[in-house]
Design a protein around this nucleic acid. Sequence first.
DNA 1: ATCCCGAGGG
DNA 2: CCCTCTGGAT
Length: 221
Amino acid sequence: MAKPRTPKGRSRLAAQRLAERYPGTAKELCALEHKDPFQLLAATILSAQCTDARVNMVTPQLFAAYPDAASLAAANPEDVEEIIRSTGFFRSKTKSLIGMATAVADRYGGEVPRELEELVTIPGVGRKTGNVVRSVAFGLPGLPVDTHVLRVSQRLGLLEGLTSAEQRDAVKVEHQLNTLVPAAERGAFSLRVILHGRETCVARKPRCSACPLADFCPSVR
DNA sequence: ATCCCGAGGG
DNA sequence: CCCTCTGGAT
């Protein structure tokens, strides 16, 4: 394939190369342990500023004590804090978890809603978390935008047409990437870009010599 | 020091 | 827009 010169072309080739490096569906690429949408939602809330490995160390005990929304909604906050303490931000995360469980139990009959507009009304759930749940738990179109997706998209030149301020706006970037990535591929694309950002296109000193996208990346050096 | 799949509040 | 929340790993 010739060297692509448009955001569309670069996104297509990047998606193809990253799929070779990180095979699997969104569900398979997600490292958070869970068995249903409620548990994935809880695990994703815990994942803020915390490694997935750390989250996976606390979720077995959390879900043994509180397997569903109704039980977590009725939890004693101090008990939850003790279980999740090592994931950091434990007081605010406990409020988010119990608030989330209360909303899911009271407003949605214990079933996590599927629409992003509904997900983001739940305490502790923003666009990134909502899109993770949509794409991983439900297999619906959703493109989680985190710090890695922001950085890698900029470097790869996928955000041409956006102002420099808009390139730092996760919502604007999400909409731009939605125009580049087919709906069915968005979840896996995002997860792969995140892995690529963590392992290769790192913030400080990107490892361009080991990058599978270096031959067409506008920022390679 | 800096990073880890953020969200809510001022 | 900035600040805060928080612990663990490197």
